[in-house]
Design a protein around this nucleic acid. Sequence first.
DNA 1: AAAGACACCTGTCCGC
DNA 2: TGCGGACAGGTGTCTT
Length: 279
Amino acid sequence: MPELPEVETTRRGILPYIEQQRVTKIIVRQPKLRWAIPPEIHEMEGAFIKSVKRRGKYLLLETTFLNKQSKSQTATAIIHLGMSGSLRVVDLGESPEKHDHFDMIFENGKVIRLRDPRRFGAVLWTRKNPLKHKLLRSLGPEPLSADFNLDYLYQQSRGRSVSIKQFIMNAHIVVGVGNIYACESLFKAGISPKRLAGKTSKTRYKKLLLMIKEVLAEAIEQGGTTLRDFVQAEGNPGYFQQKLFVYGRAGQACLICESPIKQFKQGQRSTFYCSQCQR
DNA sequence: AAAGACACCTGTCCGC
DNA sequence: TGCGGACAGGTGTCTT
């Protein structure tokens, strides 16, 4: 489900309900997600949410609490939504449904509920700096930051034999560019997804860089993309799907040149593109 | 180091 | 209606 804009939309959605709030109870109905939810997650009970951050598609809920020796301690819940996960704000007393695996209940009567039918998501708990966690430490730069710039992107691409689409979807190169936004960015940049990363000119990368930033920023503004069941934390759909040029439009006319949008597989993922507009 | 295949799991849709 | 198969927004891990 979620790419970076959906995760950011979720972050902004839950933030006002939980920042500085105290967790009163943690409920784990199904611990078997991508990795088992660790039992230590119950250390959250009694903790205050100090911040709600995001790194790539990982949500970071930093907490402070008193440990058994009554010493102030910090730990962070790391939450990933996988392909089908969502977090929403519900009121205490609302019954969980089939795939509602995890609840964080707050003193203010609000509940943050994780629903994830496919269970590719994760809820982890770390006392270290979360950015040094195994899953986060080797991630590439944030796409909307100044660290994701032309010199960096071009240098990284040299010597790479993968397609440019797979290259920009590699989280060690840049985080947050999933299948939808990879297709859309390449379309807007006029670049064929089949082009090889290592043989693409700096001029093309300049355009691509701008389009990745533009597409992601706009998708965040629109509240994410709703394909099937994505809902924001407050239960509203995202609106970016109304602006998709190629994703999910195989066989339909290109909105620019009217030639049919093509679909094929790259590294097990569907790619959508216009062979006229993208070279 | 880089690239490709595969794994995890459920729901939905399409063709017969 | 039912059934089989393909497909879906992600990404760590294992093998080459």
